[in-house]
């Protein structure tokens, strides 16, 4: 990994928040910041987190707090490059499908395996971004080669044309 990853964790359950922070802090390239509400997370979005681990239900403490799905939509509107892993206590297919529809990278159910699953999701995001980065570099390289080819072809044609002009416009042998 070239640089540290900034990871935001958003959960209104203080124990879940602390356990996940403790778990992910074991990895030296992860820089973790925690938030109890989606609103607090959005207020810090200008810090450009690489990944946000976002709870689906965020209104257990403050019943007026915005829900995770709503926060997910806003994160994606602000910056679609931020990868979001949704967390939920609900093991329901429709909840998972909804979060994916709005751009979440993965959906993790809060149970004993949740911490390892979040960790795996983060590594899958890193791999995906690495592959995308490689693909972009390859695309740029191919584009540069294509430009070079077109430019050299134009130069050759121009040189041939100049030679032809110098020769009085006749007897050009390629």
């Amino acid at each position: 990994m070239d640089k540290d990853l900034l990871i935001f964790i958003v959960d209104d359950d203080p124990m879940q928040l602390m356990m996940l922070e403790d778990h992910l802090s074991k990895f030296k390239h992860f820089k973790i910041k925690t938030f109890a509400t989606g609103e607090e997370c959005l207020a810090k979005i200008n810090e450009k987190p690489d990944i946000i681990v976002l709870d689906f239900n965020l209104d257990s403490v403050d019943r007026n707090a915005r829900e995770g799905l709503d926060i997910l939509k806003e994160i994606k509107e602000i910056n679609d490059d931020i990868d979001v892993v949704m967390l939920s206590g609900q093991d329901k297919m429709e909840v998972a499908v909804n979060t994916m529809k709005y751009g979440a990278f993965d959906y993790v159910v809060k149970n004993e395996s949740a911490f390892v699953r979040v960790e795996n999701a983060i590594y899958n995001i890193i791999k995906k971004n690495h592959v995308e980065g490689e693909a972009n570099r390859y695309k740029k390289m191919m584009y540069a080669f294509a430009l070079l080819f077109v430019a050299s072809t134009i130069i050759v044609i121009f040189a041939v044309y100049l030679g032809w002009m110098k020769g009085g416009g006749t007897d050009v042998v390629l």
């Binding site: 209104d12 359950d13 124990m15 879940q16 356990m19 239900n57 209104d59 257990s60 019943r63 206590g89 609900q90 809060k110 149970n111 004993e112 949740a114």
Partner: peptide, 16 residues
């Protein structure tokens, strides 16, 4: 609904 929310938030902790 508030009852559901309170039960929901306690559920993972009971597991842990």
């Amino acid at each position: 609904d508030s009852l559901r929310v309170a039960a929901h938030s306690l559920k993972p902790q009971v597991t842990y």
